[in-house]
Write a protein that binds this DNA or RNA. Sequence first.
DNA 1: GCAGCATTTGCACACGCTTGCAAAAGCGGA
DNA 2: TCCGCTTTTGCAAGCGTGTGCAAATGCTGC
Lengths: 335, 335
Amino acid sequence: MSEKVFVSAEEVARKAGVSRSAVSRAFTPGASVSEKTRIKVMEAAEELGYHVNHLARGLMRNESGIVSLIVSDVATPYRSALLRELTQQLQAAGKVAMLINTDRSDGSVDLALRQAIRYRADASIILSGLPDKSIAQLCLRSGQRLVLINRDDDQPGPLRINLDDREAAGRVVTAFLRAGCTRLAFANSQAGTPSLMAREQGFVAAAKAQGLDVIVERHGSTGYEAGQIVAQRMLTRKERPDAVFCATDLLACGFMDAARHQFSLSIPEQLCIAGFDDIEQASWTSYHLTTFAQPVVTIAREAVTWLVEGWEDAPDGHALTLHADLVWRGSVRGG
Amino acid sequence: MSEKVFVSAEEVARKAGVSRSAVSRAFTPGASVSEKTRIKVMEAAEELGYHVNHLARGLMRNESGIVSLIVSDVATPYRSALLRELTQQLQAAGKVAMLINTDRSDGSVDLALRQAIRYRADASIILSGLPDKSIAQLCLRSGQRLVLINRDDDQPGPLRINLDDREAAGRVVTAFLRAGCTRLAFANSQAGTPSLMAREQGFVAAAKAQGLDVIVERHGSTGYEAGQIVAQRMLTRKERPDAVFCATDLLACGFMDAARHQFSLSIPEQLCIAGFDDIEQASWTSYHLTTFAQPVVTIAREAVTWLVEGWEDAPDGHALTLHADLVWRGSVRGG
DNA sequence: GCAGCATTTGCACACGCTTGCAAAAGCGGA
DNA sequence: TCCGCTTTTGCAAGCGTGTGCAAATGCTGC
């Protein structure tokens, strides 16, 4: 490709009439430099357009400043919101985010982690998929920090951030009962993600505890269309449910649209619906969906502070269970 | 932080009983190594969990493999869709994406580019904001490639990818006229982005060419709420518009919801609405919005191939105008 | 002016890799 | 076996930076 000609510390040193180490120290907070030479260096640097080469610095310091974010379905509302928060807070902490998209194949979480290792990322945050044990161990052995968000894995080492999905599902059941619903249903995708399954199982269990059975349907991937299709299946049954908990807001949106426009049901009068994630669309007037808020800023904060500061009390990873607040809107009666 | 101990080529060389150079060559496609030693090296590498240090490689090769994406409003449907496509295609081309979020301050595009320079990014793709001329020049002088997407800047050097916003706006006018509408309006945000303004001006101009005035309202940032507020303003006028072109699908969604639920208007019978971007929600049953599709995959493809291969015929940047296809749905009569 | 001390500076090595260059090894034919 | 040729290998220099160490400089109080 084109020959790159970045200006180096050498040139700045020459221009400022100091040694190269002086330049290096001028750009290293807390290093021993007199204010006078620091100024000289900074002026020369500014004039020449010098910027410290972080590749070289990372090589020396053994700390690249890079944190890799391993994500699939980046364009999804919840994922992109989390992404926004993570990049923001990483930057505020002086790190830089490397975004690795794992949409393609399935083993690509491993590929992504390999990429992270190649760039000597200080840490990797995994939002989707689950790495092979061996490669995860390799990361940890190499001194890389690992964060699993909503992955619900049990291997020690990484920081594992999860929500109280089960318990949240229980709260939905009581909300539905209080609304006078009796025929409960759970709409899920076939993704089989731990958090999705936890919501499903929590919902079914809590209903059973009240002596109620739950209609469960799973279809496709976790998106709007899947919600529509599940709705078609559920609402054509002879025993039509009167309260549906959707594993995800996207599913819920699809479900609501199908219920209203194909089956002319009014929500919440004839059908109560709850979702999970509190994506932006959930608050739109057309949906006004009662749902659980993902505490994205807390998630990001916990992840980033752990990465940056480390935790003394748990040198070897940690599990964190955050609370999902129920956001009452109009799709469930009562509230 | 924790001491990182990645395995180096040295160790692999020792284990495989070859020289360090042999290891390096084994991992360099097209380098001169016998198949026999390549195998030996690969086995040793696999066993030790060796991965080439791309920081060091980038230092030597003067090519980091990093491409920085400079974005604000990452969580927005259109932006995140473009992001998905870009990361995907960059990875397919052997590059890796560095995501820099510029939500915070306004001068932060410059800060972002500085960050890109520090990491010796091979290129930077700017999705939002506009860099200061001087810093952009610095990038180019340093041999960095620059892509501006929908920024509509005129400085030479970067690749500039834009849509035919003006012309698209003209097509909306004819569509509205064909639907029998006579009182046209344009809903915009106050962002004042070049592409948004181009749509507005194109719409106003095309209407004027037909002898029609246009009601223009601008409010806030380019989102759902702004759409609602603009709707409230427009629909409480004595001369209520019967066709509204929204600068953005998000604005359109807000506008539609306000029109339906606050003003009980039916779309498209009493009010025609068109948007721009073709975000996922535009296809949802509740909106079914007639809109222009951003050719995200084409945009990404053009950007990435230019970055990777360069263009001989235009060594020094280029401007590209892509076509936005009109997607007919139900929010405009006729079609 | 000078001893005693704290601060600043420069040298030189290290980080892990690529690559030009020359030496070594392989190979085919006489 | 030996020569000429091609392929493979190892050596060493270099990429741009950080940092320990010793030398140099500055400052204070006599």
